[in-house]
Design a protein around this nucleic acid. Structure first.
Lengths: 101, 101
DNA sequence: TTTTCATATGAAGGTAATTTCATATTACTA
DNA sequence: TAGTAATATGAAATTACCTTCATATGAAAA
C-alpha cells in the first residue's frame, strides 16, 4: 500500500512548485523557458517537476524544434481544484489552521 | 507559497494510511478502535492521521461517551477520488510507472 | 562540424513529513 | 475514587521528498 495511484497522484499535487506550474499552464500550453520565466524558478527544478507531472499524465508534452511544449490535462485537474476551492470556502473562512488561512 | 490550501490539502491526501482511513470511513462513521482494527495499524499512528485529516475538514468527529466517532466529508472527497479513478482508467491501463500500475 | 540554445538527468545534500514510543488525558465503571 | 478503556499528544528517530549543482543530450544555427 505504498505506491498506489492515489498516493502518487496526490504526492504530485502536494508541491507548491508543481501547483504553480499547473496554474501557469491553465492559461495555455508553454515551453519550459516560459514556465521558468513565469515562476522565476530554476530550470532543472522545473524540469524535474514537469517530469513528475508527466508521469502522472497531469501534463502532456510535445516536441517543437528544440523546445518542448507542455500542456495541462485540464479535464482531470480543473474539477479537482474547483472542488477544493469550494471546500476551502465552506470550511476555512476566517482562519483555519489546516488550510493555510 | 508554502502553506497554501492546495499544499495542505494534497499533502494530507498523499498518505497511504490516510487514504486507507478515508476508504474505511466511506462505509460508515467509525470510532478510532474500529479504524485501528480495520487497518491493523497502530493506535497513535491512526490518531495522528485523524488529527491531520480533521485539520483539513476531510473528516469530522463527535464524542460519544469515551469514544470518538469519525465521519468522512463525502461531499468533498468522493468526487475527487472518482475523478482520479477515471483518470487512472484513461491513462494508466496496462502498466504506468507514474500511477503505481 | 563546432557552437549555442533548450531541456533533461543523476546524485548528494537538505528539508519536511511520518512513524514510533512513552506518556497524558478524559470519561466511564467497579 | 481508584481503576480501566479509549483516545490524544510530544518529541526523537526514521523515511520520503525536494532542491541543487554539475553535467549530459539533442536540435538547430553559424
Amino acid at each position: 500500500m505504498k505506491n498506489s495511484t492515489y498516493h502518487i497522484f496526490f504526492t504530485n499535487l502536494a508541491s507548491s512548485l508543481r501547483i504553480q506550474i499547473i496554474s501557469s499552464l491553465k492559461e495555455r500550453p508553454k515551453n519550459v523557458s516560459e514556465i521558468v520565466k513565469d515562476l522565476n524558478a530554476e530550470q532543472s527544478k522545473v524540469s524535474h517537476a514537469l517530469m513528475s507531472l508527466r508521469h502522472c499524465n497531469i501534463v502532456d508534452v510535445k516536441q517543437k524544434g528544440k523546445e518542448r511544449i507542455y500542456s495541462l490535462n485540464k479535464k482531470t485537474i480543473l474539477p479537482i481544484l474547483k472542488i477544493i476551492d469550494k471546500h476551502a470556502k465552506t470550511f476555512c473562512e476566517g482562519n483555519c489552521e489546516g488550510c493555510g488561512k
